[in-house]
């Protein structure tokens, strides 16, 4: 399994995270997304004419789009069937719904982060307000889920790929100037995701446990 990967990409991180959680071995192919724009180079456009990361190659099978890759990986490699329960129509429906929601998070909170950090152009005000609108919806949803003793986004006793798809844009939102302070249910859910066994980080996210503000003193 090859992953065409950029370290700071939230979408690449979704794939790396699920591979770690399921325990899939993979080979890293670093693409110089920034500042090199290698994802728009001729060789990469042959693999993905959209010029987007991530992309995987599994035994000659090429797949682009982070959410498509999550579906593929969970279906093919997760023997427990909990990350993408293919026999459960309701949960699959919910997952598809929240994968769409995660796309909207990408184009709002995710774009704001790329704007502030890497100067990728967007309408920053509408990205930020759009992200807050989505986070209010997610926060309320998670609050009701908790009331029903459900700790995850979908109505399922385990986390699913919907949690993995939504997590990075949410957890990295502050890099785009989007605070999570008003979303307590989201913050509790983020901690739960960070405590899933074999969780891995992306630069900008720390493992559960020490609070970022405590680590500050050494800097």
């Amino acid at each position: 399994m090859k992953l065409y990967n950029y370290e700071l990409s939230a979408n690449c991180y979704k794939v790396r995270l699920l591979m770690s959680l399921i325990g899939i071995e993979w080979e890293n192919i670093t693409v110089d997304y920034y500042p090199g724009r290698e994802h728009k180079s001729e060789w990469f456009l042959k693999l993905n004419p959209l010029g987007q990361l991530p992309l995987i190659e599994d035994d000659g099978f090429i797949l682009r789009d982070s959410h498509a890759i999550l579906v593929f990986l969970a279906t093919k490699f997760d023997d427990t069937g909990k990350w993408y329960p293919t026999q459960n129509a309701e949960v699959l429906g919910e997952i598809a719904q929240w994968l769409g929601f995660a796309d909207s998070l990408n184009s709002t909170a995710g774009s704001a982060r790329l704007h502030d950090g890497l100067f990728i152009e967007c309408d920053i005000d509408s990205c930020r307000s759009g992200a807050h609108r989505l986070m209010r919806i997610l926060d309320e949803h998670l609050w009701f889920q908790e009331k029903q003793n459900n700790m995850w986004i979908c109505s399922h006793s385990n986390p699913t790929i919907a949690d993995i798809a939504c997590f990075p844009s949410i957890m990295l939102s502050e890099e785009g100037g989007i605070s999570r302070i008003d979303y307590p249910a989201i913050r509790r859910w983020c901690d739960r995701v960070r405590r899933i066994p074999n969780f891995i980080v992306i630069p900008g996210i720390f493992a559960a446990g020490p609070d970022i503000n405590c680590e500050n003193t050494g800097s």
Binding site: E7, L8, Y34, G117, E174, E175, I202, P203, G204, F206, I212, N213, E215, N216, S219
Partner: peptide, 13 residues
Amino acid sequence: QLIFGQDKPILEN
């Protein structure tokens, strides 16, 4: 970028 990405949230806080 990996290393600086780790510093960034610390700095911004």
